[in-house]
Simulated scan of single mutants.
Amino acid sequence: MITKKINPFLQQNEETVTAWIFLTPALILLGIFVFYPITYLFYLSFTTGSFTVEGVQWSGLRNYLRLLINPDFWQVIRNTIYFTIATVIPSLILPLMIAVFLNQSVALRGILRTVYFIPSITSLVAVGLGFRWLFQNQGPVNELLINLGFNPVPWLNSTLWAMPVLIILSIWQQIGFNMVVFLAGLQAIPQMRYEAAELDGADGLAKFWYITLPGLRPTLIFTTITTIIFTLRSFEQVYVVTGGGPLNSTNLLVYYIYQEAFARFDFGYAAAAATVLLIVTLVLVYVQLRFRIEE
């Protein structure tokens, strides 16, 4: 009797040990490449100095206070908020419309899906160089405007028009990924719901509003959060196309962190700004997980 009671306990312990043995390599990699860098970033945000012979010195909350009183940082925050809102909304609406269209029995659906997805796997550096050529003062876009009878626009030299160029580039790059996610969500909605709605006399708009959107609620939450995160970490567009200019009008948070760390070598201040970005990202991930649990 005693043996029978002990064996399940020993078996459970053996399974636990085996599980930890298999998990240990992954945990070690996570610790080295994820948890340690995050911890060191947090520590670095409370220091001043650089990686020289003098090293870094503890400075407490000084870097965070500098963020609060620095007008350049707040301009970057405004730029990032404007860029995020103007990018995320079209990056959700346009892919949803394309996904609804492709979800119908249209010809060449596989080819069209591939064509729309290509921007998502294209190098942003290469695309950025292409957009820089398109929107330069003597570029094809201004040439088209002149042919249509309009005045040329100094796209990349204007504090008004430089940011829309980055927004157009980011929307173009996001459409394919979100379209594929929406298409998968649409195909998961039972077809019988649409058939029942048709029997009740519902038109296309009613079916979209009362069946498609509620059925896509988890997908919408996922795509919204991931698109915001992808947009917040935008760097290549700014680096290649505008360099943060003109007059700091297109400087986004990640590019600002890069400038402070690797141009001015103010690693503690850059780490504080990166910590702010990390906190915002973690809050967004928490919101996504919270909604998923409620589902």
Score class of each variant (00 low, 15 high):
I111P: 01
K4T: 09
L41G: 05
V153P: 02
A271F: 12
F135V: 04
V285C: 07
G243D: 05
T224V: 04
Q57L: 03
N157I: 05
F51S: 11
A126W: 07
I189E: 01
M1H: 11
V240D: 02
I211L: 10
Y40A: 05
Y258R: 14
T226R: 10
R264H: 10
Y269D: 07
L145A: 08
A263I: 06
V115K: 01
T39G: 11
F73Q: 00
N79S: 04
L284R: 06
V280I: 13
T114W: 06
S91V: 06
V53N: 14
W58Q: 06
V88R: 11
A188Q: 03
G60A: 09
Y43S: 07
I77T: 01
F22C: 09
R233I: 05
G268M: 14
E14P: 01
Q288D: 05
N7V: 12
R193C: 00
V88K: 13
R113P: 02
P140I: 15
E236R: 12
F33V: 03
M97W: 11
G215P: 08
Y210T: 04
A26I: 03
F101W: 13
L160P: 01
A107K: 15
F182W: 09
F135W: 08
P152E: 06
V100T: 06
A271Q: 09
R109C: 03
F46L: 15
T114C: 10
S45Q: 13
V76Y: 04
E195L: 05
R217W: 08
P246Q: 09
V141D: 10
A270G: 10
F135C: 05
R62F: 11
I171W: 13
K4A: 14
Q11Y: 11
R113L: 13
M192G: 12
G268C: 08
I229N: 13
L23K: 10
D266L: 08
N178T: 03
T275V: 13
T223V: 15
L94W: 02
P8H: 11
V240A: 08
Y258V: 10
F117I: 02
T231M: 04
F208I: 10
T224I: 09
W155G: 04
A270S: 14
L166Y: 04
G128F: 02
P190A: 03
P90I: 05
Y258W: 14
L232C: 14
L252M: 13
T219R: 00
F35H: 07
Q75V: 02
L186I: 00
T212F: 02
A188E: 06
I2L: 14
T231L: 08
W20S: 09
S59V: 10
F182Y: 14
L186T: 01
N147A: 15
F230P: 03
G245S: 08
S59A: 15
P152R: 10
L144D: 02
T24M: 12
L134A: 09
G204N: 09
N147F: 04
P246H: 10
I167S: 14
F182Q: 01
L30A: 13
T16G: 06
V53T: 12
T281R: 10
I6F: 09
V180F: 01
L29M: 05
G128M: 00
N157Y: 12
I6E: 02
Q187N: 11
G55M: 00
R78Y: 07
V287W: 11
Y210K: 07
F208E: 12
N63W: 07
I279Y: 08
Q12C: 06
F177A: 05
D203S: 09
T226K: 06
F83A: 01
L145S: 12
A206V: 09
D200A: 13
P37F: 06
T224R: 06
T227Q: 02
